[in-house]
Design a protein around this nucleic acid. Sequence first.
DNA 1: AACGACACGTGATTC
DNA 2: TGAATCACGTGTCGT
Lengths: 198, 198
Amino acid sequence: MENCYWPILNHADEPPWLLPPTSAADDRAASASRSHSEAEKRRRDRINAQLSTLRKLIPKSEKMDKAALLGHVVDHVKEQRQRAKEVSKSSSMPSENDEVVVDQIQDGSEQIKASICCDDRPELFAEIGSALKSLEATIVEADITSLGGRIRANFVISAASSSAASHIKMALTRLLISSGSGYGVRSKRQRFFYPTPR
Amino acid sequence: MENCYWPILNHADEPPWLLPPTSAADDRAASASRSHSEAEKRRRDRINAQLSTLRKLIPKSEKMDKAALLGHVVDHVKEQRQRAKEVSKSSSMPSENDEVVVDQIQDGSEQIKASICCDDRPELFAEIGSALKSLEATIVEADITSLGGRIRANFVISAASSSAASHIKMALTRLLISSGSGYGVRSKRQRFFYPTPR
DNA sequence: AACGACACGTGATTC
DNA sequence: TGAATCACGTGTCGT
């Protein structure tokens, strides 16, 4: 800034006697200014390096300005969050509470999502199968996870009847009741899944 | 920049007659400079806005400088990528090929991961259960998914014996063979999971 | 010319 | 005090 006292046409290749007198204070100031701008450049480089690795991680992010890139990064993070949440929802660990959830995926769709969580027992799969068969429902997809004597089963079911959802819910609820409501008297027959030790 | 011809002590509150003469060219230049700096500020604001929303998404990112924040963002994205990859590995859809995979989670650990992929049939679970019971192995965790008459079952098994892993692999392989190698003659008994229509 | 995006150097602030 | 971070205005390049 002090150099602004001299005209801007003052190029570095001009004769030295045209340059301003140099004091010790000027030297210190110049040195400080230089290290300052160098440090600032290092900072910019660090930021831009991270920006560039982000560009490699995000698809189609070449040819995007910084703001757009960061915008897509936030979208990407939010999408991944949502995915993870839905995965842990649809294929979750069995909980402590018995429950049956049935709902139409879309209105007019014959796809139905059904879920049951209850104590494990060896006949359960067969019972569910025969129940759904009597309802003329087809199991398109099944995902069953068991832990500690409890079991959670998620189904994607295809059914022609429009009232199938409520029938399925009734049938599964009946299975759940016949499982849990033994006045504490459970079947003595061997479970397929054993309780986890410790 | 042209203003640099005047001393920097030229404050705004000084008498106007000390100010440089104003030409139409100067006016245009000043206006351009102003809109330029305003546009640049808008750009900075867009970038910083995204940075700020990223800060809300990343935990513990308050009090982090921009470079550190972006660094943690890349880590976060990579971690989520890895998580998603491992989830789709551990709980995968059944494949076309029969297979049995068994391996110790760690040396000296009694935790064993076992996986079987084959055609679905109603007695399969019971067979696996009795096979593992005869090996004194305990099913700690089970995850079974079925699609299109095929089934994939992933287990986490706890077994005391050090040779349990190979025994488990033999037992599961035997089940797989008794399932597929019927010279095309499959059990006529009703499957629990039906093949998906169309 | 005019606008948008970038890098640069600098003043201000904080520790 | 120096070191580190930020916002700002400006120079520059490409469209």
